[in-house]
Amino acid sequence: AHELLKKMTEKCFNKCVVRPGTSLDNSETKCLNLCVDRFVDAYNITTKSYGTRIQ
């Protein structure tokens, strides 16, 4: 899960924190949480599709 967390952190930080301010504001925090959820969704889809295909 380490590699997954690392990629997720980079992708979600770049997407959600466009202009870093003096603290994470509410919309950034909300975006980060949703981004984690969607990134895991995407990862599950990728894993399933790839698994089915290479069987």
Partner: peptide, 15 residues
């Protein structure tokens, strides 16, 4: 730098 560390913590917690 500071927000990246904040974001890392928030992301790890959510995950």
């Amino acid at each position: 730098v500071d927000r990246f560390i904040d974001a890392s913590l928030a992301i790890t917690q959510r995950f």
